[in-house]
Design a protein around this nucleic acid. Structure first.
Ligand SMILES: NC(=O)c1ccc[n+]([C@@H]2O[C@H](COP(=O)([O-])OP(=O)(O)OC[C@H]3O[C@@H](n4cnc5c(N)ncnc54)[C@H](O)[C@@H]3O)[C@@H](O)[C@H]2O)c1
Ligand SMILES: NC(=O)c1ccc[n+]([C@@H]2O[C@H](COP(=O)([O-])OP(=O)(O)OC[C@H]3O[C@@H](n4cnc5c(N)ncnc54)[C@H](O)[C@@H]3O)[C@@H](O)[C@H]2O)c1
Lengths: 231, 231
DNA sequence: CTGACTTTGTGAACGTGTGCACATGTGCCT
DNA sequence: AGGCACATGTGCACACGTTCACAAAGTCAG
């Protein structure tokens, strides 16, 4: 009886690396590379080969022993697993310094995250056009989210307004938030939040920089794959 | 014999949280709060109270049982541990969309990371002034790094130029790099790299968003402290 | 068809991080 | 002075993540 296969849960750490593999694989596909070994992919991603194999094994056994992985097929599988088979329109709250840079950046649309809207509370910002999108009033948020089926919101307001922005996003129906303001957002169950805090990143670098007194190197991880080696 | 106490190694995960505690503690200090309990701090930071205590215990036993931690003193200790007792000037490579937003953002200087310089390779970008800093040619990088004692560099160039930017930073003497380009940078031993990849963040959100079919919530961690609860 | 070679997929050992639970220390109130 | 309430600091068990090492599975040349 072909019961729909139960979705394996993929470890958090693996989920964070899959996008990196995906980017590299797409690049390789553009270079007409047809197959890639775990070692080759590991090299390009700056990680251990065993880690690559274990990560990919969560998707299923899609490699061929003695050969490696078929690039195009892996791209397809990772896309599917990450939910990138369709676009995820994004709405940006806050059309300041950062909001404008984000909205004007073409890289998101290319990767399946088109900017469905940019909203701001400041009347002076309204109706300017950034990256082909007109800045609208924050009261239009609900309408934008509904009509464009937005489920991801980006908070790019000053820290003091970030919780308000998040509340409005949630009320409008958004269920995932990427937060650039240096504050901890409170959200209801059922809503995911990821934060990007640049000052924190610099402070972490500062910590290792400070310790680097006479001593050698540090590979830094956590967020990502820091690494030493080569040049 | 007062031998200089051997520096305890602080776990990576703790180092990543200390800046968050620090920000909250500074806020509390501004609100004239004198003492704070691990529970209170945990609440504000969106983490477990035991974790807060363990994290702080790596700095030493600076709490008072029955009372909590003295805010001002903790601020001092965390600053010291993170190496924030003095400023860390930063040089930004790439004066595009993002580089301009970063350079124009006052928040870094406030937190001890003044922008010592912004460089670009495109003659058209030269001599424009962003956030009080004039954009200079990338050939001036060495001079800027030397004269301002810069040890942290920010890469905000297109992906194709990122490795070149990193190489130049390293050659100029920079030993920590914050990379915004979606590529894996190769650097020599002794150089730390952290990367911020916004597309990756969105793709991680996409993964959890996709799975949210009927099911409840997800707290997302890794980078940070995602969280569920309240509104 | 055989055998040498390549590379995957994964069991198992290890290391790191988390969170409970509680003994221990501190301040306050009577 | 003594007792009580409170909050820290940490031992311990468990969960999660990483890496090694190797059998199994496949390729390819002759
Ligand atoms: N610019 C950077 O490079 C940078 C770097 C790190 C962090 N950040 C953080 O990103 C956030 C935005 O930074 P920025 O430099 O763009 O700030 P900004 O002041 O330039 O822009 C903030 C925008 O948000 C709008 N806004 C204010 N309250 C709002 C509300 N309630 N609803 C909707 N919009 C509202 C403002 O009108 C303004 O246009 C801040 O929290 C900042 O700390 C920015
Ligand atoms: N803008 C965003 O919101 C955003 C978001 C996510 C990621 N990024 C990434 O950040 C990076 C910068 O993005 P952007 O939008 O600012 O791009 P951009 O094209 O606007 O700016 C890039 C700048 O780098 C300069 N440059 C090119 N080669 C250089 C070199 N070898 N040395 C020094 N400078 C050089 C260019 O002259 C240009 O001014 C890209 O890698 C992009 O993928 C940007």
């Amino acid at each position: 009886m072909p019961v729909e296969r139960v979705r394996r849960r993929i470890p958090e750490a693996t989920v964070a690396r899959l996008p990196v593999y995906l980017r590299i694989l797409v690049e390789q596909a553009n270079l007409e590379v047809e197959n890639i070994s775990s070692e080759g992919l590991a090299e390009l991603a700056g990680v251990n080969a065993a880690k690559v194999r274990k990560d990919l094994s969560y998707l299923g056994s899609y490699g061929t022993r003695g050969v490696g992985y078929e690039v195009a097929f892996l791209v397809y599988q990772i896309r599917r697993e990450l939910g990138l088979t369709h676009d995820w329109p994004v709405v940006i709250v806050g059309a300041g310094n950062l909001g404008q840079a984000l909205a004007g950046y073409g890289g998101f649309g290319e990767r399946g995250f088109p900017v469905a809207g940019v909203v701001d509370i400041d009347p002076a910002k309204l109706d300017s056009v950034i990256g082909g999108v007109r800045v609208r009033h924050i009261d239009d948020l609900g309408q934008i989210v509904q009509s464009r089926q937005v489920s991801i919101g980006v908070v790019a307001t000053p820290p003091a307004a970030a919780q308000d922005a998040a509340d409005r996003l949630v009320r409008a129906g958004v269920t995932s938030i990427l937060n650039f303001a240096p504050v901890v957002l409170g959200v209801p169950h059922g809503v995911s939040v990821r934060k990007v805090d640049l000052a924190v990143e610099l402070q972490i670098l500062s910590y290792y920089e400070q310790r680097r007194v006479g001593v050698g190197f540090h590979a830094i991880g956590s967020n990502d794959s820091g690494r030493g080696a080569s040049a």
